[in-house]
Amino acid sequence: MTVETSTWATKKGLAQMLKGGVIMDVVTAEHAKIAEDAGAVAVMALERVPADIRAAGGVARMSDPAMIQSIMDAVTIPVMAKARIGHFVEAQILEALGVDYIDESEVLTPADERNHIDKHAFKVPFVCGCRDLGEALRRISEGAAMIRTKGEAGTGNVVEAVHQLRDVLAEIRRLQGMREDELFVAAKELQAPYDLVRDVAVSGRLPVVNFVAGGISTPADAALVMQLGAEGVFVGSGIFKSEDPARMANAIVQATTHFDDPKILADVSRGLGAPMRGIAMEQLPESDRLAIRGW
């Protein structure tokens, strides 16, 4: 009996197990327990939630391994952690720690302005952000086993997440309607490998699980992106920047499961206290936008 670890099926498979669930940003072991008790399917361990990264400015880096370890010890659900775009040594450190998934994330300050991490070289699976289909397929060709649209992290504003998810899904539908000989040009325009473009045109979906991130801060936000076609959600600042994190976390979990049932959504949205304050996109200068990081 041969046993193979870290195969494509196991990397992509863990993301499949997270579908229909909520992955929550946590900064302490205590937060991680609250998230787990609220029904999170995984936690993202980081030093500051995106809203605080925004407020603090400066260079945002991989979190302290001791802090990540304390979260891994506190919960039994999978633990993810972020590495800077292109910072393959941060990724090596996270792999050595034994995290379950690495997020090569635009929320941290990029370490390389041309190259992303060669994710095939790692045993641990990666999730990467995208704004459109071409970016998603470039990340998958580099080895990402899970995709999330980026939204605009730390704003509490779902508008960018909606925009990007609609774009990705509309581009997939466009490919589905193409003749075989048109897919070559489509691949050129998407700046993505032809084989992946063709695979998407035939199957009508990304070859990996697709979550939504960046700006989800209420149960209704989560249900909105689920109804649009997301397979699950990441919630960053939306939980621990709200008035009552445990209740908000639980309500977003319920809404992600019952995304298509307005009665249940009304029920779980009741009396949650104030969600995070949020930022309108017009107030956010181009230089403060995180989603444009990544190439």
Binding site: M1, V99, V124
Partner: peptide, 28 residues
């Protein structure tokens, strides 16, 4: 089996289902 890094695939004999082994994916 441990964390995600220990997830694996293998061929598994399941006599009740016949001689052809089952391709089994184990994830956490």
């Amino acid at each position: 089996f441990g964390r995600q890094l220990d997830s694996f695939e293998t061929e598994l004999a399941v006599p009740m289902l016949g001689d052809r082994p089952v391709h089994a994916v184990f994830i956490r």
